[in-house]
Write a protein that binds this DNA or RNA. Structure first.
Lengths: 162, 162, 162, 162
DNA sequence: TTTT
DNA sequence: TTTT
């Protein structure tokens, strides 16, 4: 009932972005998360880097296309998805990936490798808002770097009848 | 940029549910989460119960109305929201609540206090599916107990061009 | 930097539990999370069940051993871990699992398949506390069902100097 | 049973850090999370900034003391905690805060307002490791900027008996 | 009170 | 005010 993944890490290589025949955009990212852990056997600190494959569709793929590069630090929220495929020897193989529901660019805009020589954004306010999700198929054109689309209904807490 | 709350606990009293003039439904729940912690000063285990106020709108409020009762065990995902209000002495006061984005009933259906004398659901499979969110304004009628609405687009991993 | 998985689902088969030569206990669980999604192509609702493999060590493995069975509904918080192994044809293969940091049994105690014919717990209060984590190597003997160990320091908010 | 808050935002002012008589360090941070939402009534996009008060103890307070400043972008994982207090008119008042379990500095080191004129860290690699938690009272000296302490036991997946 |  |  709940299948949630939350990652913060650095992108290992420039993302792959494709457009399907039907017009849907898909992006794939390799993301590294590094943790320190203590090796009980060796009685010493070690570091472990885990590499994640993340798939992003439509609006999120578009944000990736425009703003994510090798080295970008990002936040991803999504779900685990195991795909089944056949290898060259016709053996069933499984690959586990993260299907993204939300993505945010982290750090300052100047951190972003994609900001070098990037489109000017005409000095606009550009929002800096960074929540994005699949929930917004009707997302307006997205001039903001680091952003996909509005995320939530504005149910006014002042209206509360309690 | 990220404001996320994840709670699992027990409902302290029957929820309040209201319908606004405009027709929108709102529900309010008091949820208890209990944790054990170790009191360093006293050198003994203690228990702390935290009480949360959760606001749920529209489809989620409807699920609450039908299936959540005092004693229900639920999963809630949402955001922190601090409301400002004036007390009787005209002092500014603040109240922090959780605005729910998702809610799930936990446990077996028979656990659910709302299941006593509940509508029969015609012996249907009932799925046990429990994801629900505000993202689905177009949610079909929801025959499932423990559920609000479909949660996600079915981007087919088999279509992946990678 | 952040590699977090949060799952709520049902256990697909009785867990495997082993004790290593060094004395450490390990458990492995297969957990199903089911979500409903809407198939855009077919224009119809579908259901997807994702199967997760979860590894739990020491105290958590012990709780699994005693209280988790096929059918149990559990909450798991952990990290993604990809293991590399060689298949029979000497090909490098990868398997992605969840290394658990926390586990909770959900629902009422009577829901728990392990509660049938279970040890009596001497009519004790039994706590019902369900937070558990690897952080507590010094966990006291754990008489509580559904529990591993205290989870948190009791830094007293009343002591706050702010 | 589960009371979890995950925040990513910007620090609104320099943190307050205190040392209690017993020697424990405590820090307090005001953190802003901004989200865009769509106002259904006004039919227009709006922005909402939520301000959170975060309390951090011991090792985390120390990291805050050394590396967090007004403007820092941070990741915080913690729990909701409502404190009761008396106002000047002897009325019971409640304040909800986040008690941090983990904190990470985000962005590149050069982003960090605390890095200006900061201690040199001996030209070291700086690691970029940022997991930190209360779980590690025995943390070794922490030469890394952006870090508190090792986070996890290194249960070796290669040892798995499955 | 932050950031974009 | 819940639950164990």
């Amino acid at each position: 009932m709940v299948n949630k993944v939350i990652l913060i890490g650095n992108v290992g290589m420039d993302p792959e972005v494709r457009t399907l025949e039907g017009g849907a955009k898909v992006a794939r990212i390799r993301l590294a998360t590094t943790e320190r852990l203590f090796d009980r056997q060796a009685n010493e600190a070690k570091e472990h880097t885990e590499w994640h494959t993340i798939t992003l569709w439509r609006g999120l793929a578009d944000v990736v296309d425009r703003f994510v590069r090798k080295g970008s630090q990002i936040y991803v929220e999504g779900r685990l998805r195991t795909r089944e495929w056949m290898d060259k020897d016709n053996n069933k193989r499984y690959t586990t990936e993260i299907l993204a529901d939300t993505m945010n660019l982290l750090g300052r805009r100047s951190d972003n490798p994609a900001s070098e020589g990037a489109p000017a954004y005409g000095g606009q306010q550009q929002g800096g808002y960074q929540q994005s999700g699949y929930q917004q198929p009707t997302a307006a054109p997205q001039p903001q770097p680091q952003s996909a689309a509005p995320s939530a209904p504005a149910d006014d807490p002042d209206d509360l009848p309690f």
